[in-house]
Amino acid sequence: MSCVNPVVFYFPQPSLKKTPLFDFHRENGGKMVEFAGWSMPVQYKDSHIASHVHTREHCSIFDVSHMLQTKVHGKDRVKFMESLVVADIAELKDNQGILSLFTNEKGGIIDDLIVTKTDCGYLYIVSNAGCADKDSAHMKFRAAGLDVDLEFLDEALIAVQGPTMSHVLQEGLKEDLGKLSFMTSTLATVFGVPGCRVTRCGYTGEDGVEISVPQSRVVELTEKLMANREVKLAGLGARDSLRLEAGLCLYGSDIDETTTPVEAALVWTIGKRRRQTKDFPGADIVIPQIKSKTARKRVGLVSTGPPVRQHTPVLSPDGKVIGKVTSGCPSPCLKKNIAMAYVDAAFAKNETALQVEVRKKAVPATVSKMPFVPTNYFYG
Rank of each mutant, 00 (worst) to 15 (best):
G271Q: 03
T352V: 13
P261S: 09
Y251I: 07
V286M: 04
T352P: 13
T352Q: 15
E263L: 00
A362S: 15
K369M: 03
S316I: 08
R359M: 11
L244H: 00
S303R: 11
N376G: 00
V299W: 05
V373T: 08
H311E: 05
V286S: 01
D279T: 11
R359H: 15
I338F: 02
T277C: 06
A246Y: 01
G252L: 02
N350K: 08
F347K: 12
N350V: 10
A339W: 06
G305F: 02
Q310A: 10
T304F: 00
D279A: 12
A362L: 05
G282K: 05
I270Q: 10
Q289K: 09
V314L: 12
M370S: 09
G252F: 06
W268C: 05
T277P: 08
T294G: 08
K293V: 07
I322Y: 01
V373C: 02
P261Y: 04
T269V: 11
R275Y: 00
M340I: 04
T294D: 13
C333Y: 06
T352F: 08
P281G: 12
R298L: 15
N350S: 07
C329S: 11
V299P: 08
S303T: 10
L244Y: 00
A265Y: 12
P364K: 07
I338D: 00
V367Q: 09
G300E: 07
S292E: 14
Y251E: 08
V286Y: 03
T259I: 11
P281W: 07
V286L: 10
V356T: 15
E357P: 05
G328H: 00
V286H: 01
C249L: 03
Q310T: 11
G323N: 05
K369D: 15
I270H: 10
P261Q: 04
Y342N: 07
Q310W: 07
Q355C: 12
V356M: 14
K291N: 09
R273Q: 13
S292I: 05
R275P: 04
